[in-house]
Amino acid sequence: SQVHIGNTTFTFDNPEKAQKYAEKYAKKKGLTVQKNGDVWTVE
């Protein structure tokens, strides 16, 4: 599972961890999370 934030990609061994990280980061920065398969993009 991966989380894309700008030009940075974070890889997680667990989809739940990836989703939590993406949502927490997005909330903190006032951004949105797009999910595509097991990839979350914060923008």
Rank of each mutant, 00 (worst) to 15 (best):
N36V: 14
V39L: 08
Q2T: 11
E43R: 08
Y25D: 04
K20I: 12
K29G: 05
W40K: 00
Q34M: 13
G6K: 09
N36M: 11
S1W: 15
D38L: 10
G30L: 00
F12V: 00
K17L: 13
T32Y: 04
Q34R: 13
F10H: 09
T9D: 04
G37Y: 04
A26P: 00
V33A: 10
K28F: 08
V33W: 06
Q2G: 05
D13M: 08
N7V: 06
H4T: 11
T9E: 04
K24C: 15
T41W: 11
N14T: 15
N14W: 06
E43H: 12
G6C: 15
Y21M: 09
Q2R: 11
T8R: 15
Q19V: 04
K29W: 15
K28C: 13
N14V: 08
E23M: 06
E23P: 04
A22I: 09
F10C: 12
V39Q: 09
L31S: 02
T8K: 15
S1I: 14
G30C: 03
Q34L: 12
T9Q: 07
A22V: 08
N36G: 02
P15E: 09
G37D: 06
Y21C: 08
T11F: 15
Q2Y: 15
Q19D: 04
N14H: 07
Y21D: 04
P15M: 05
K35E: 01
E23C: 15
G30I: 02
F10Q: 05
T9Y: 15
F12L: 04
G37Q: 05
T32M: 08
N36L: 13
Q2I: 15
D13S: 12
T9K: 12
F12D: 00
H4L: 13
S1E: 02
K27I: 05
K27S: 09
V42P: 00
E16K: 13
V3G: 03
D38W: 08
K29E: 08
P15I: 05
K20W: 13
D13P: 12
K17D: 15
N36S: 10
Y25V: 10
K28S: 10
K35N: 06
V39S: 13
E16F: 10
G30N: 05
A18G: 03
A18W: 03
W40G: 01
K20R: 13
E23Y: 09
L31I: 05
N7P: 05
E23R: 05
T32E: 05
Y25N: 04
N7A: 09
K17G: 07
S1M: 10
V33I: 09
T9M: 12
E43C: 13
G6I: 05
H4S: 08
G37N: 07
V42S: 03
V42F: 08
F12I: 03
V39P: 01
A22C: 06
N14G: 06
L31Y: 12
G37I: 01
E23K: 07
K35Y: 11
T8M: 15
N36K: 10
E43K: 13
E23D: 06
N7I: 06
T41L: 11
F12G: 03
T8E: 11
Q34K: 14
G6E: 08
D38Q: 06
T32D: 04
T8S: 12
E43V: 15
T32H: 08
N36C: 12
D38V: 07
Y25P: 01
K29N: 14
K29I: 06
T11S: 10
V33T: 03
T11D: 08
V39T: 13
V3E: 02
N7L: 07
Y21W: 15
T32G: 04
T8N: 11
G37S: 02
E16V: 11
W40Y: 12
T41P: 00
V39R: 04
K28N: 08
V39A: 09
V42N: 01
K20T: 09
G37A: 06
V3K: 01
I5F: 06
N14L: 07
G30T: 02
S1D: 03
Y21H: 04
A18M: 02
K27Y: 07
K35M: 06
F10S: 04
N14E: 10
A18Q: 00
N14S: 15
F12E: 01
T41C: 14
G6N: 09
V33N: 02
K35G: 05
K17A: 15
E23S: 04
G6D: 06
I5Y: 04
V42W: 05
K27V: 04
W40C: 09
E23T: 04
K29T: 10
Y25W: 10
N36A: 09
L31G: 07
E23V: 06
Q19L: 10
G37C: 01
V33F: 06
